[in-house]
Amino acid sequence: MKRYVKLAVGLTAMLAVHGNSPAAKPAMDPENPTCPAEPNWTSNKKMILKPVDKNGTKVLLAEGVVDLELPERLKKALSDNPDITEIWLRSPGGHARAGNEAGRIIREVGGAMITRIPAGWTCFSACNFVFMGGRARIIEADGDFMVHMFTMTGDRNAINYSIEMGTDSTVELIGEVEQESALLATEDNDFLIRMGVSRKLLTDIMYKQKAVKTEGDDQSTRRCLTKEEALKYNVANVGD
């Protein structure tokens, strides 16, 4: 009997060493309680595309910021590696229109491409639209599809400069931001229709998030979809 007890203890230790024991659930963000406190979206300053083999499947790892040059790099990566069948994503977001364009490239060039957010990875903001380019879309358990209210005010230097220049300059910039935001909203709406995602994702979820923190009890600016919401809005159309 003692020998069997020792064997069981030894197997348990081996599982822990090799990382096969159940992982602890990450701490949640108190201000954004549907999302992890420390999203796993990498520190890459631009999205790195790396083809790898995963158990006999050719996968493109796409990790980092969605930058302006991503669409061209993505098109080349898919062209150079026609045997890629999945794209795995983790990203803190980036350039909104580059995200939309990358999603369209996946749909047009990638054919029956699968996009996936693996367990523990986070796909935020512009990455959402890259992900939606897949014909089959999978969000694994503990993978995070994180959204927010898009904003065209990412260029803080331009905003600060306009404030220094005075009221007229700031009013002009605000007008440009509003115009660009309205245009981007139209583009996002059209994109969702083309990708087969419910437009209610925008009205029910994204547009209800605050772009910046305001006074009051609710300080959330981010929202992570539940598995039920992802399927309801057809963001994910394949179960993990």
Results as ranks from 00 to 15, higher is better:
2 K>I: 13
3 R>L: 14
5 V>N: 11
6 K>V: 14
6 K>G: 06
11 L>V: 09
16 A>N: 12
17 V>H: 08
29 D>F: 06
32 N>S: 02
32 N>G: 06
35 C>H: 04
36 P>G: 09
38 E>T: 15
39 P>K: 06
40 N>C: 10
40 N>I: 11
43 S>T: 14
46 K>M: 04
47 M>G: 08
48 I>S: 10
53 D>K: 13
53 D>E: 15
59 V>G: 01
60 L>C: 05
65 V>N: 11
65 V>F: 15
65 V>L: 15
70 L>E: 08
77 A>P: 05
77 A>C: 00
79 S>C: 06
83 D>Y: 00
84 I>F: 00
84 I>T: 01
87 I>G: 02
91 S>N: 08
92 P>R: 00
93 G>N: 10
95 H>G: 04
96 A>G: 14
97 R>Q: 14
98 A>Y: 04
98 A>Q: 02
107 R>W: 01
110 G>N: 05
112 A>I: 03
113 M>L: 09
114 I>V: 12
118 P>A: 13
120 G>F: 11
122 T>E: 07
124 F>T: 15
127 C>I: 10
132 M>N: 13
135 R>H: 09
142 D>W: 02
144 D>I: 13
148 H>M: 11
153 T>H: 07
158 A>V: 00
159 I>L: 11
160 N>H: 01
160 N>C: 02
161 Y>E: 14
161 Y>T: 08
165 M>A: 14
166 G>N: 02
170 T>G: 01
171 V>H: 03
175 G>C: 03
175 G>R: 04
177 V>Y: 09
177 V>G: 00
177 V>I: 13
181 S>Q: 14
182 A>F: 13
182 A>G: 13
183 L>V: 12
185 A>K: 14
186 T>V: 09
190 D>R: 15
191 F>D: 01
192 L>I: 07
192 L>E: 10
197 V>I: 12
198 S>K: 12
205 I>D: 04
205 I>T: 02
205 I>R: 10
208 K>V: 02
211 A>C: 01
213 K>F: 05
214 T>H: 04
220 S>K: 05
222 R>S: 14
229 E>F: 08
229 E>N: 05
230 A>G: 10
235 V>W: 00
236 A>R: 03
